[in-house]
Design a protein around this nucleic acid. Structure first.
Lengths: 135, 135
DNA sequence: GGTAAAAAGGATAAAAAAGGTCCTTAAAGG
DNA sequence: CCTTTAAGGACCTTTTTTATCCTTTTTACC
């Protein structure tokens, strides 16, 4: 029931990107330094983001990363799920018919409710919100 | 963000207890068999429950386990926290001043909200609810 | 075309957590 | 004092997390 470091680094990293001037390409090494995360590890995380279109990447000289769409269109849920996989409080919510006890299980609906709540909280927060300075 | 097996076994085990006639002492071996969980592993979980008063234990011949209080007074949260520790979506919620970034961190309040929501959902479900047969 | 700068991708490895077993000790009943 | 049953501690295996390193690909610039 806990975010891993990877998830935390992911958030720190992409929030840092979101704080940059729109259109400015940022090196992963700069993000690493600014967030205090190992560069190689962060690079993996950003690769992940790139595959999902959360960021765009450019190779070679002058390369780096940039948000894949406006900060207001990237939710915290998308960021977290990009590296941690789907919000899934219990294994038995994985898929249809996965859990053989589903029919009788009274706990099932509770997990589903938690899944829904957590999901909608994370859906409601965008990178735009997170990039603001705390007043 | 996922319940471990230990947590799942804990729930299965104590719900089984809650389904028994009030006052009936149950062997851990019976619970293990009924729930399909290794007996030694489940025994550890029940030791944990006993320390917290969720169950009462009796040693020796005729011994076993019994709920420590009425099923309606044991919440799912208490069960989960007994084996998984406190609901804690992010490390930085651990204690006061633990997270050095708290002052500026915009993500903090989100985790706190999730923590609150998940907590209150789990608080609202008791073993009495879980012991009912699904209609 | 050559070279330097970056990210992509794969292989590997150490550390931590999860998942579980086994053995001895303590308590209780007959 | 023997059997039953939980308590407690030590130990072990597997999986997941948390990385690191090396090679390859892409790109820009000279």
């Amino acid at each position: 029931m806990e975010l891993t470091r990877k998830g935390e680094y992911a958030i720190r990293g992409i929030v840092f990107l979101a704080k940059q001037p729109v259109g400015k390409v940022i090196l992963v090494s700069d993000v690493a330094e600014a967030t205090g995360v190992s560069q190689t590890f962060l690079a993996k995380i950003f690769q992940n983001f790139a595959k999902l279109g959360l960021v765009n990447s450019f190779r070679g000289t002058g390369g780096g990363f940039i948000l894949g769409r406006p900060a207001s269109k990237i939710t915290l849920r998308q960021v977290v799920e990009a590296v941690e996989g789907p919000i899934m409080p219990n294994r038995c919510l994985t898929g249809e018919g996965q859990c053989s006890r589903e029919a009788e299980c009274m706990v099932h609906p509770v997990w589903r409710k938690i899944q829904g709540e957590v999901g909608s909280i994370l859906d409601s927060v965008t990178l735009e919100d997170l990039a603001k300075e705390k007043k």
